[in-house]
Amino acid sequence: MVALTEMTNLAVDLIDVRKTYAKNIHALRGVNIQVGRGEIFGLLGPNGAGKTTLVKIMMTVVKPTRAMGTIMGRPIGHRGKLAKTGYLPENHRFPGYLTGLQLLDYYAALAKVPRAARRASAPKLLDQLGLSKWGETRIDKYSKGMMQRLGIAQALMNDPELIVLDEPTDGLDPVGRRDVRQLLLELRRAGKTVFLNSHLLSELEMVCDRVAILVDGLVARQGTLSELTEHTVEYRITFSGDAQPIRSKLAALRATVDGDLVVLSGHDPAKVNAVIDLLRGQGLLIESVQPHRFSLEDILVEAMGGTAPQPQSRERQRADKAS
């Protein structure tokens, strides 16, 4: 993957995007996000962080109070470029009187897709999303999962260069989610850019090249998953015996002791060895040494101003179980 700084060709380059609603509600307070062409980008954040507002601004559904930057090389709000953009909104509602094929045809016609291309791609996409037998069925007969698949199909009807998906796995069963993940990876292989807004962090972790965490209308963190997690590594060392006599020496190495567990923050193997030497010098038996990288969830919680879940000693785990 090419580092973002080396990318001369950004698919999405949002600079100082702001949105203030009536009664002085600041939904976005100067968002800066860069997405390279051909990557899967994940946007995450707590409810009310402004994620959907940002996506709607990108898709010209909501007008920004202020916004600079470009989408596919054109200023934000440029309608012409929307012909090569696909969008699946959150909680979408499709007209129940249309069949699957009619719906794809209708939205693709609005996206200026020629009739011949519409006729060719609609059955293919339905097939790709497991709806081939449902093309002639009115969509008010579809289940929520089928509706979601259809929504993704309509977002792809115009063979877009940029695909913006707001909660694409909403309502899908595990198999459906896996299918969508596969589809996203296929799209990336085909050189498409995918902008994903999802609250399912595990999903984002599995497919995204880069993510941004939006908190309270501002980007709290942004980068590749490894960039975001490289400073959030810790080592967890379990042992048997009494470490009380060397507690002050461990503290000097910035290691904390909790019963039979020593936690050492940061990625520094030399320090880990020093801690192990101290423990063994005291005659304690080392049982395990585990490097622990924080998950996206931990990072999100931290970005939201909370604290990531703390490791627990075996004694505390036993006490929790007993209570």
Partner: peptide, 18 residues
């Protein structure tokens, strides 16, 4: 009103037409 329903209008407004 049905055209302007949340979730329905979004899909239409993102199309390349004024």
């Amino acid at each position: 009103p049905t055209f302007l329903d949340r979730g329905a209008i979004d899909v239409v407004l993102c199309k390349p037409m004024p």
